[in-house]
């Protein structure tokens, strides 16, 4: 069972205080968008072996959504950050690179 630190209220807590919300940084495709874009938004998800970006909500705490960068193999958490961004911030990228120099970067 993971432990995560909520960047919104600063609490470090076990997984049962949080709810998972799937892949982070999805782009929404609305009315009029091509089928392929809509399909990718709704149904196609990355399933990497290694660095992954995820949505979490501090359900039993401050109620805020946040994002986490995590390794799906070792469960190492590289960092958590606020959800109001379309891509991982520089300090998170740097933290991942420091631990996974071979990582190809956020795409």
């Amino acid at each position: 069972m993971l432990i995560l630190t909520c960047p919104c209220c600063g609490v470090t807590a076990e997984e049962t205080e949080f709810s998972p919300g799937g892949e982070a940084h999805l782009k929404r495709y609305g009315p009029g968008s091509p089928d392929r874009d809509y399909e990718s938004y709704m149904f196609n998800r990355k399933n990497p072996r290694g660095v992954h970006f995820e949505r979490w909500r501090h359900t039993y705490g401050c109620g805020k959504w946040f994002l986490a960068a995590r390794c799906t193999i070792t469960l190492e958490v590289f960092g958590t950050y606020r959800a109001q961004t379309t891509e991982p911030p520089a300090d998170i990228i740097a933290a991942i690179k420091a631990r996974r120099p071979e990582w190809e970067g956020f795409a």
Partner: peptide
């Protein structure tokens, strides 16, 4: 929760 999700993560 659905409302908060959209407000916090899409239309912040």
């Amino acid at each position: 929760a659905w409302m908060e999700d959209w407000l916090q993560c899409e239309w912040w």
